[in-house]
Write a protein that binds this DNA or RNA. Sequence first.
DNA 1: CAGTATCCTCGCAGATACTG
DNA 2: CAGTATCTGCGAGGATACTG
Lengths: 181, 181
Amino acid sequence: MAIQTTQDPFRRSISHILDIIGEGWSLLIIRESFFGIRRFEEYQSQLGIARNILTARLKKLCENGILERVPIKEGAKRHEYNLTAKGKELMPVLIALTQWGDKWVYGENAEPVIFLDRRYAEPISRIEVKSARGEHLRPRDVMVAPGPGSTPDSKKRIEEMHRRTEESDKNSKCSNLEKSL
Amino acid sequence: MAIQTTQDPFRRSISHILDIIGEGWSLLIIRESFFGIRRFEEYQSQLGIARNILTARLKKLCENGILERVPIKEGAKRHEYNLTAKGKELMPVLIALTQWGDKWVYGENAEPVIFLDRRYAEPISRIEVKSARGEHLRPRDVMVAPGPGSTPDSKKRIEEMHRRTEESDKNSKCSNLEKSL
DNA sequence: CAGTATCCTCGCAGATACTG
DNA sequence: CAGTATCTGCGAGGATACTG
């Protein structure tokens, strides 16, 4: 996909991450891992993925430190694939995606997946974006900004960006809907 | 990628969502939208994407209700692409991805993107998964479960899943690292 | 069971030229 | 400027056969 490395540093992040987990099957494999799947054959039968592709994806996920390939028993030849700490911390991404899907794709009626607090076996409250003051932030209250290491003209671009966002909010067809967000 | 519609209902969610936003460029386009990009040529020059592909992606994002194509001025021929409410609510996904990337890909030193509370222009606290009791949940404390509409044998499978997770935690090479998560 | 090796197909994506 | 139309390649993914 020809990621542009010459771009703004603060634009590179997502593309790089997509390079790691963006390939078609990767996130599905990670999801299966969260469901307790560990073995090659299990992934294969659950996902219906071609064997060679599965091999390649598992390998890449291991190389990127998301899964680890460990012997089933001490010294055994068989292996299984466990989520690493790095892999497990993709949980919020899965939750955010699922929440979005529940709301916008499946609608209020369908609640296909529940995330549980493992200790009490009770559903977790939905993931939220909170301000530094602890308030719940609506998406329209969140802006993006370049970090400390950004280029000198960043400030100008950010101001422009904010201006545009305000403007297109006004221009939006469904502005009343937006406001209530 | 041949999504299996005959699978468990509680496994379908992510694959379906990936169908909508999983294609190579889609999330990058959405990211640019959050950065204030609105016009065809802007997307094109910012991303370096081929024009025909951009056309196809924008069309699909509009069809899926993530972007909306509106005239620049009343009755004008030119259009621009605005994020809809549905699109804006992908913000938590972007944030979760970025946070993960900051921690695991870029390391502590690099902070390429900051999300700002728009009203106070101050950084938001990091996105968190909270329990129903308001406690912060570590990834290892979160489990996945089928929703109300799941099949009768779901309970059995879930128990098995939990058992496996416990087991592979023990089996993990970096168990001490995991514990501290 | 857990892969490897081969072959094949399809469509994502790039490049470029053209149009209102 | 904002696309559409064509041509082309490359690689992800599928199917299947084979191996320790």
